[in-house]
Write a protein that binds this DNA or RNA. Sequence first.
DNA 1: ACTCATTTCAAACAAACGTTTGAATAATAC
DNA 2: GTATTATTCAAACGTTTGTTTGAAATGAGT
Lengths: 236, 236
Amino acid sequence: MPSFDPRHTPDTRARILDAAELLFVEHGFEATTLRMITSRAKVNLASVNYHFGSKEALIQDVFRRRLTWLNEARLAALDELEAEAKGAPLKPRQIIDAFFGVPLRVAADTEHGGHTFMRLLGRTYTEPATFVRQFLADEYAAVVPRFKQALFRALPDVPPEEILWRFHFMLGAMSYAIAGVDALQLVAGYEMDEKDPGALARRLMPFLLGGLRAPLAGQTEQTAGKAEKKTPRKAA
Amino acid sequence: MPSFDPRHTPDTRARILDAAELLFVEHGFEATTLRMITSRAKVNLASVNYHFGSKEALIQDVFRRRLTWLNEARLAALDELEAEAKGAPLKPRQIIDAFFGVPLRVAADTEHGGHTFMRLLGRTYTEPATFVRQFLADEYAAVVPRFKQALFRALPDVPPEEILWRFHFMLGAMSYAIAGVDALQLVAGYEMDEKDPGALARRLMPFLLGGLRAPLAGQTEQTAGKAEKKTPRKAA
DNA sequence: ACTCATTTCAAACAAACGTTTGAATAATAC
DNA sequence: GTATTATTCAAACGTTTGTTTGAAATGAGT
């Protein structure tokens, strides 16, 4: 029986986690084999099953190691804001900063592997594997409702349903922002060298706030439905 | 030798493509086996290699079948807008509607499998498999530069680099919007039944435009050089 | 020193993967 | 009709996958 107290295991466990995290980003879960992981971590093949039990459990531990801390930091940031506000509703900008600012700062931390992990996390919202989705749902169950409530209070005139959708859109933008340069290259056509890690947050945050506070569809003008006359498909 | 003229093959080829598309959405590329595909399509296992040559080629054909038409529709919409404008710069919302409106309408088409494919496509921007990325890059090489240029002309005061990033963010938001309900459930905590397929576009479009036209970071911070200030913004 | 639990290691495991084969069948042309 | 080509099919191919095994090495306690 392996000891689950990290003090008892030297660095084999951490070496595996680090190597797995890196390879998952590069190749995805399924395409990353245990042999790739163990050879990169310079440990024996069997040690993965010895320390984690299975590949599936390893994947969950890779996430748990970072995600738990991340969500705690998010909640702490929100707690502090709400304490300062003394019962008054927060500003949207504060809420967004608490939720998205934390992972963005983690992503900017290229030293401790935070950047690597965030690219992995961004991809995972759309990961179809059920055990990953279930795990993510459990992990977010504690943090998302708090932010939902804060946003509802901050934007009392916007229908709650609409807020949830826009929160969803913001998650997508952040996901791409962090998954980042590789996918952007697909669009930009050339590699953007971003040396300043904080620049990403300064780019993304205004975008998120602009989207969140945009006028609703019925409010100003029609948004879709005019542009197609010659599209072969039926008009919506 | 297989015939590449679709008239010569009955429906085996199409059956495989349909089944593959559906299973790729559900389980991803790697987790979807040829045996799953062929058993769902009710064809023999060997027919995939017979008709497509390899699993990799099948994946590319699944994309090509839809993506070629999609990008042609995007370019056609842009062509029409530019013809109407007679040389004048387009409005941002026209450009956004041409690029994002087409896939949104395809996604709303649940009858012909468009919805299924769009969920697949959204995930694929962040797909790490190199042959998928290369294929996507080739497929977008014809359409993205046109839209880039149009946006540069429409927003002359915004640094081009910033436009590209925001375009990237918009892609992320759209990706999540379409991948949609499953991932949203993760956030909302409950299933949102969306009967009206056009509602998604009415939700997403204002968000995208709000993000695109948001004031730059120089407004509150001073670190990044403030390069623009003259365009009247509808901040809220 | 010995003991005992923990961890490493090389080797093998069954299962599943994409792919190939060669014969059987269907379709088309002459 | 026969000849020819295109497609289907069951079976097997060689690899690779995650996992298991049992013995060797390591470390701590007494």
